[in-house]
Simulated scan of single mutants.
Amino acid sequence: MQGVALAHTLLLAGTVLTGCSSPQSPEAVPTGPPCVVATDLVPATGVLSGVNLDWQNGTVAEYASRLGRRPAVVVYSTAFPLPEDGKQNVDAAVGQIKANGGILLLTLEPHDGLDAVTPGKAEELARQLAGYNNAGVPVVVRFGQEMNGGWFPWGQQPAAYIAAFRTVADAVHRIAPGSDMMWAPNYGGGYPFDGGQYRAKAGTMDAGSLDTDGDGAVTVADDPYRPYYPGDDAVDWVGMSLYHWGTTYLSGTNVVPEEGKFLQQLTGTYNGVGGDERNVPDFYADYGTARNKPVAIPETAALSIPSRGGDDELAIKQAWWRQLFDPAIPRDYPALKMVNWFEWEKLEVDLDVKAEVNWTVAKEDTVRDAYIADLPEWFTSAAEPQACTPVG
């Protein structure tokens, strides 16, 4: 999620999971055949259907029960390097995912700065991931999401970010073959996102690196993705946070999204009520198909503010998810392999939003039932979990 509204992830960092029903660690799972250590996490067909779960207020099992299907991907976010009780929290999340089946998308947030991401810490993490892989839980590591924005301590520092990403990727690729690395900027509409606390300052080396058109300033004309790309050898998945925020970015208006908005923003062809954003590169083509990388939408949802008037919650959310379920996607956009809904209710403090936003699809029965009815077969859920004995 864009901007300082992403502070929700801090609730998870260094905090023992609550609202959870005593999740098992992978080692506590009943024995059975040897666990399969998956090394190819990209589905041959279809799109992995996942969830950004509010771990403070629910479990994976409860979410799966509400939808009648197990999510193929579950997102968990933590500070990195891991805080004192960070491993315990990740273990608890992995225990729930082990019982559910599917993939952990582990979001690592270097809140202490990119200099804190050392080879030693990266190798320690990779050994932890290898344990999860050997217990049958695949992991995709999303390191330092939305680095092209200025709202996180790791934002708009291209050289330092790339070095840190590659440090983590090197360790993960060497030590945890059942884990992948995901590079995931924010959608580039509105770049360079004025007002962020960590935005690159004019005259610095970072600002010089971000001035891709060489006009002496970082502006909307500069490439919002390329300066931050860590390299094909370090990246296994490419992803992008992409939300419907209302009429315009962070407008806080309850309005049905325009037809075709999702795919237009993914491909850099959007020109609508939110403005002409055709200067934004085609993320799908430039970082997906051209580089032979699977494409993910690790976070998405449609804004609905219960305390305000405007369009109906169901109308807004259904219009957005039907764009995610567009039958053209498996035919014309086969590299799109993962979409994760942001299943949260939370206070958004940015710009004109400044209100409690209900991003969920599974909470209200009417919305949930409509969502389930619209889910296409190619939007895939997790397979039935099997008890197994960890390898090694």
Rank of each mutant, 00 (worst) to 15 (best):
A135Y: 11
G246H: 08
N254H: 10
R70A: 14
A99E: 15
K317N: 09
A319H: 04
E343G: 11
T389I: 12
T15H: 15
L105H: 06
N57W: 13
C20I: 13
P294I: 10
S307M: 06
D194I: 00
P26A: 05
N340M: 15
H111D: 14
D180L: 06
L82A: 14
V172K: 05
N271C: 11
H244L: 04
V349L: 13
P33C: 09
D369P: 00
T289S: 14
D369G: 00
D170L: 02
E258A: 13
P227T: 03
T248G: 06
A79S: 14
Q264G: 00
V238G: 01
A315S: 15
R331T: 15
L53Q: 15
A171R: 04
G216D: 07
A217R: 14
T253A: 09
K363A: 07
A169R: 05
Y228L: 05
P43N: 12
T289A: 09
D369Y: 01
V4K: 02
T167K: 03
G19N: 13
C388F: 13
G310I: 10
P224S: 06
G68D: 10
V218A: 13
F152S: 03
L266W: 05
P227M: 11
A335F: 05
D369F: 02
E123K: 00
T167M: 05
N89K: 02
L314P: 01
V339Q: 07
Q56D: 15
A370H: 04
D311N: 12
E313M: 14
Y287I: 07
E84N: 10
A355K: 00
A38K: 13
Q96K: 06
A335R: 09
L12G: 10
K87M: 09
I316M: 07
N279L: 08
P281A: 08
T167S: 08
S304H: 15
A335W: 05
V29C: 08
V353K: 02
S241I: 00
V29Y: 10
R66V: 09
L82N: 12
N292I: 04
G46Q: 05
L17H: 07
P294R: 04
L336A: 02
K354A: 11
E384G: 03
T269M: 05
V137A: 11
N52L: 09
D211C: 10
N52G: 12
Y228C: 00
V29T: 11
P294F: 08
T247W: 07
I297C: 04
G101R: 08
M147D: 07
V117A: 09
V140A: 03
D311H: 12
T389F: 11
E348R: 01
S22T: 12
T204D: 06
T107G: 05
Q318M: 14
A221F: 11
M1R: 01
G214Y: 08
V141G: 10
L48Q: 15
D286I: 03
A163G: 06
R226I: 00
G239E: 04
V47Q: 03
S179P: 08
V16I: 07
R174K: 14
E277Q: 07
